[in-house]
Design a protein around this nucleic acid. Structure first.
Length: 510
RNA sequence: CGGGGUGUAGCUCAGCCUGGUAGAGCAUUAGCUUUGGGAGCUAAGGGUCGCGAGUUCGAAUCCCGCCGCCCCGACCA
């Protein structure tokens, strides 16, 4: 008897939806395609923000805030960028409502002379600022970041993975030359790898996107790709070297040491609340989410076995002092986040709520524990032994002494489990496209796990790459990236037969 | 935006084919019992059956239109 009604094996998409709801992470809102993020989900995002923001600042960036609304004309400047986003933009055209036939409508007399678009990303308005702020090589590099919401009018939405409005961070930088901008691009990618692996316990493969998967307007796009438990890939973060495309479109020039006017090289990079979807599909199980301790809003939850009797007060005091003592212990560089759940509900219900949310350690303290000075607890990442819930008991002092190590070990175990799955699920024994077809083309074996393929290719471009894309699309596959770590020699390209120049990852993707 | 599915109580769903004025389980509320772990009994509250327009004496049920959600596709840094 699991805590969720659907298992991953039965119906993975349905399971995902169920976890989001049952772990109380978020819910759909009345606004189409947009969600209400609830405290457990928002708390996870706040931890991710904290960790990433620290890294961003440590590497010399400063936070800014740019407007939500961008003049339409700004967007029209970079041709590829326009084409990439035009189909999914929300547009503000009026500044006043008026009652017409009993219902409120935009006042025809209050139409804006120039419409505003709700930012789908901020390259254009930040580029405009860059063009004013950057005068001299002494102004470079200019490295900024903003935490913001953005909106893309998506046709098909999924909670956390693709919503119309989402929260993210976008870094934008300008540099004197390509070398410096590329260093920045790779620095951002490394920050993302570090946050994904060290904080979210989500193993990723960093690499460069093929030409047809680039960000609109980018010269080179890099990504980190994570493997979900159904074998699909999730693009968990991207970093772009934009060359001088935006500098040309928006006139971002600086006077160099020789007095000449030179175009700046820019970058942009971002991760979003989509990471939470990645955490769910990496660490979730049939009892709900297993929240990595580093991002768990509550790392230790104490459920007192209250019985509505006078001795409850003693038990509450014992739990409160335990929580307070845990708050004096440090883990991942911060005090342990402990909570005594005093909600007026049955203890068993509270326990299962925290199991579904995935609090890493759930203590269930009864009068006997209090009397004996001990702590009874369950570890969420190893909840069961067979079908049965596995419960542990330790003397209180021992529990407190080892709680930090326990949380750190849980973080490691979650990562190791996901890393092992990733490593064993990348096949590199395909030597022809026919091999791929045999493996991925077999029809409708429901829910069968198929991981990724790592194959050599000759990096075709233009129409030849389009054709490769079409052949893969027939198998519902896409090229995820060319991993940064490459062997020294390559087999023949599985698409063209020409000598390979690098290896790429191929997968089904979210 | 195309194909399929679906929408009835907070949740999961039955009822629809064969029209007759709304049900179950869980949840909620109250009382009693129980108490080392997702409790039992009793009672109560809760739904203009997604929205709109039709057919009909009568529509959750039949017809038409619209909308949301889920899956697939297209699309997607």
């Amino acid at each position: 008897m699991h805590a969720l009604k659907v298992t991953r094996a039965e119906d993975f998409p349905e399971w995902y939806q169920t976890v989001v709801r049952e772990a109380d992470l978020a819910e759909l809102s009345p606004t189409r395609g947009s969600m209400i993020i609830k405290p457990w989900g928002m708390g996870i995002w706040e931890r991710i923000q904290g960790e990433l923001d620290r890294r961003i600042k440590e590497t010399g960036h400063e936070n800014y805030y740019f407007p939500l609304l961008i003049p339409l004309s700004f967007f029209a400047k970079e041709a590829e960028h326009v084409e990439g986003f035009a189909k999914e933009m929300a547009v503000v055209t009026h500044h006043r409502l008026k009652a017409v036939d009993g219902s409120l409508k935009p006042d025809p007399e209050a139409e804006l002379t120039e419409p505003l678009i709700i930012r789908p990303t901020s390259e254009t308005i930040i580029g405009d600022a860059f063009s004013r702020w950057i005068k001299s090589y002494r102004d470079l590099p200019l490295k900024l970041n903003q935490w913001a919401n953005v909106m893309r009018w998506e046709m098909r939405t999924r909670m956390f993975l693709r919503t119309a409005e989402f929260l993210w961070q976008e870094g934008h930088t300008a540099h004197v030359d390509e070398a410096d901008a590329m260093d920045e691009t790779m620095l951002a990618l490394e920050m993302y790898r570090s946050v994904a692996e060290d904080v979210l316990a989500v193993p990723v493969i960093a690499g460069e996107k093929p030409e047809n998967e680039r960000f609109p307007g980018a010269v080179r796009t890099y990504s980190i790709e994570a493997m979900m438990q159904d074998g699909k890939a999730l693009q968990a973060g991207t970093s772009h070297y934009l060359g001088t495309h935006f500098a040309e479109a928006q006139n971002i020039r600086y006077q160099d040491k020789d007095g000449g006017q030179t175009l700046a090289h820019t970058t942009s990079w971002g991760v979003s609340t989509r990471l939470i979807g990645g955490v769910i599909m990496t660490h979730g199980d049939d009892d709900g989410l297993r929240t990595p301790p580093a991002i768990a809003p509550r790392q230790v939850v104490i459920v007192p076995m209250l019985r509505g009797k006078p001795e409850d007060e003693e038990l509450k005091a014992y739990c409160a002092s335990l929580a307070s003592e845990l708050g004096g212990v440090s883990v991942f560089g911060s005090p342990v986040r402990a909570l005594v759940d005093l909600k007026d509900a049955r203890p068993a219900d509270k326990r299962w709520d925290w199991v579904r949310r995935g609090a890493p350690i759930i203590c269930e303290i009864g009068p006997r524990d209090a009397a004996n000075g001990q702590v009874t607890f369950i570890k969420r990442n190893a909840l069961r032994e067979g079908e049965k819930i596995k419960s542990h008991t330790l003397p209180r002092a021992d529990f407190v002494a080892q709680v930090a190590a326990q949380l750190a070990a849980t973080q490691q175990e979650l990562f190791a489990e996901a890393k092992a799955r990733l490593d064993k699920s990348i096949r590199s024994d395909f030597t022809s496209f026919a091999d791929l077809e045999r493996y991925y083309g077999t029809e409708d074996t429901e829910g069968e796990f198929k991981g990724w393929a790592r194959v050599p290719w000759s990096r075709p471009t233009g129409a030849a790459l389009e054709e490769v894309g079409e052949r893969l699309k027939a198998l519902k596959l896409t090229i995820r990236n060319a991993p940064l770590t490459q062997p020294s020699s390559f087999g023949a390209c599985i698409f063209t037969g020409a000598p390979g120049v690098e290896e790429i990852l191929i997968a089904r993707a979210y």
